[in-house]
């Protein structure tokens, strides 16, 4: 790969473990600040070899609690961990309350852990647009494992597949109807199913339902989703959960699926970036199009219809 040029000081600082610079560049990425571009560009070749584990599922199933315990487990195994927790932005104010940190145990003096909350800033699909770039920064910063918690929107967050190498779908007992509605999306994304709150009644039934569901599905490129039961309040199953994730990561390497998956993710990221750039460019041209106001007036007057005007505008601004 072509060398990406001399290393800007911020990039060097991130690689050398400077957490403040890392935190600052993450903000720049979130804000679409052009200052981040030379940093992410030069770090890009160093990224792509770490497990990025997406944890998704409805609100309140225990995603944050599980991530907290996965972090503890990984620290036992002497692996460093970074967490990105995405919560929804309010469509009204653009603000948000990011509360996933509440479940995170106190590790004020452990440099092997990094936790960052992130607002979705208008993205649907459960993952903020900047999340993928942020996971790469954490990768370049040297963390061994990156965990991503996505907005628990009730719907399974399909976009997690554009970020994660392994996706964990978390469910709880008595989510019967929800499982039915999630079904269509489930096999698209789940590499591991986690039945959390196994301390509650009904956990066995939930697990059995899932086993049936998984048996019905066709295995996606040679991987059949694993099912684990966990409880974070009466701690159990966390080792199993990590083992299932690790088994999938191993499968990715063994089967060659890692490269194919990465190809799919990169392709969807590039398409998304182009869409954003072109959209912005076109919106700018549209605003400067002198005929726009006139045609809009005619649509209001009912002398033209919206489709005709859209066709005309698409032609004129496309030509420039």
């Amino acid at each position: 790969m072509k060398r990406a040029g001399p290393m800007p000081p911020a990039a060097r600082a991130i690689v050398n473990g400077d957490r403040r610079v890392l935190a600052r560049v993450i903000s720049q990425v979130e804000n679409g600040d052009p200052a981040a571009a030379p940093v992410t560009r030069v770090l890009y070749p160093r990224t792509g070899n770490k497990p990025v584990v997406g944890v998704t599922g409805p609100l309140g199933v225990g995603k944050s609690s599980l991530i907290n315990q996965l972090v503890a487990r990984l620290r036992e195994l002497d692996r460093t961990v970074a967490v990105v927790a995405v919560d929804p932005s309010s469509p009204y104010s653009g603000g948000s309350v990011l509360g996933d940190r509440i479940r995170f145990d106190r590790r004020a003096d452990d440099a092997g852990v990094f936790f960052r909350s992130m607002a979705s800033r208008g993205e649907v699909g459960g993952v903020a647009a900047a999340t993928r770039e942020v996971t790469r920064l954490l990768d370049a910063a040297g963390f061994d494992v990156i965990l991503v918690e996505t907005v628990g929107s009730g719907q399974v967050d399909l976009a997690v597949r554009d970020v994660a190498t392994t996706s964990v779908v978390v469910l709880v007992p008595h989510l019967g109807d929800e499982v039915q509605t999630l079904k269509a999306g489930l096999f698209e994304i789940a590499d591991v199913f986690c039945v959390n709150k196994a301390d509650l009644p009904g956990a066995d039934v939930a697990r059995r339902d899932l086993v049936e569901l998984v048996a019905l599905g066709s295995d996606r490129s040679g991987w059949r989703p694993k099912i684990v039961s966990t409880s974070t309040t009466q701690p159990s199953g966390i080792e199993d959960l990590w083992s299932a994730i690790a088994a999938h990561e191993e499968f990715l390497d063994r089967s060659g699926a890692r490269r194919a998956d990465e190809r799919r993710r990169v392709s969807s990221e590039v398409v998304e970036l182009v869409r954003e750039k072109v959209g912005r460019e076109l919106a700018g041209r549209l605003e400067r199009e002198p005929a726009l106001r006139h045609w809009v007036d005619q649509v209001v007057e009912r002398t033209l219809d919206p489709h005709t005007v859209a066709d005309r505008l698409a032609k004129t601004i496309g030509r420039r």
């Binding site: 104010s93 653009g94 603000g95 948000s96 309350v97 509360g99």
Partner: peptide
């Protein structure tokens, strides 16, 4: 939040 801040609680 309602004033547009991202609040880490």
């Amino acid at each position: 939040r309602d004033a547009g801040f991202e609040v880490i609680y």
